[in-house]
């Protein structure tokens, strides 16, 4: 094998490649029927589909989120700011958790009641070390009610993608006041494509055996979502 295909990000491997020109040339010949004056935006795209499916009060949206999360076998809990540390402590204790992975920016106080050894995420925390960790507790960027989805964007209260993947138990806290949207279109407009995103809808699952859904393959097999109502500040 030669380095002609640019095994590294070497300069020149991009623009001088003959296959690039060949493919672009083939595309242009294949599209001879497209008028040369046609701009991409000239081809119409009807966007008359709905922004949300149904209208709901904020409370109804949170209820729908809870229903849809439960439907895909996530466990849903509700609490307020004062009750959160005790709830988290209880969830971790019930699971028998001794070590818990946490993002560097987990809000202070969340784990004060829990008798666990926190393992703070950092670039030096290896996948092998994470494999020995029992649980992970994070916040999230957003949740979608209509699909029962929580979305992580690697923010300070979420950490790197691997910490919510390798441990078998994920507790994810959703601040209901400003993190719940109704629909997929509403979610996308609030997310930044520049950040690595993980959309999570229930625990890991598979439909690969006789096209029937079974929970639990490689990702966390237990997903607990805490819907947090914060005090007015």
């Amino acid at each position: 094998m030669t380095a002609a295909h640019g095994a590294g990000p070497g300069p020149g491997s991009r623009t001088s490649h003959p296959s690039r020109e060949r493919i672009l040339g083939r595309i242009r010949r294949a599209l001879a029927d497209v008028p040369s004056y046609e701009r991409p935006a000239d081809h119409p795209v009807p966007r008359d589909y709905l922004r949300t499916h149904g209208s709901r009060t904020p409370a109804e949206s949170v209820d729908l989120l809870a229903d849809n999360l439960s439907d895909y076998r996530a466990t849903v809990h509700r609490t307020d700011t004062a009750g959160l540390p005790a709830l988290l402590a209880e969830l971790l204790a019930r699971r028998g958790t001794r070590s818990v992975a946490v993002p560097p920016g987990l809000p202070g106080g969340w784990l004060t009641d829990a008798a666990v050894e926190p393992v703070v995420d950092s670039p030096s925390l290896s996948a092998g070390a994470l494999d020995a960790v029992d649980s992970v507790v994070t916040g999230c960027a957003l949740a979608i009610a209509e699909t029962g989805t929580v979305i992580l964007d690697g923010g300070p209260d979420q950490g790197r993608r691997r910490i919510t993947l390798v441990p078998d138990h994920h507790v994810c806290v959703v601040r209901v006041a400003d993190q719940v949207v109704d629909s997929v279109p509403q979610a996308l407009e609030r997310l930044s494509p520049a950040r690595p995103l993980t959309w999570i809808s229930g625990p890991s699952a598979t439909s690969d055996i006789e096209l029937d859904r079974v929970e639990g393959v490689h990702g966390p097999r237990t997903l607990e979502v805490v819907l947090l109502v914060e005090d007015d500040r």
Binding site: Y72, R160, A194, P196, W199, S201, P203, A205, R213, G219
Partner: peptide, 18 residues
């Protein structure tokens, strides 16, 4: 499904993640 269990999106590389 209303949504599949996991969807990942990434743009190039991210420092210290992935």
């Amino acid at each position: 499904e209303r949504m599949n269990p996991y969807t990942s999106t990434w743009t190039g590389t991210t420092a210290d993640d992935g």
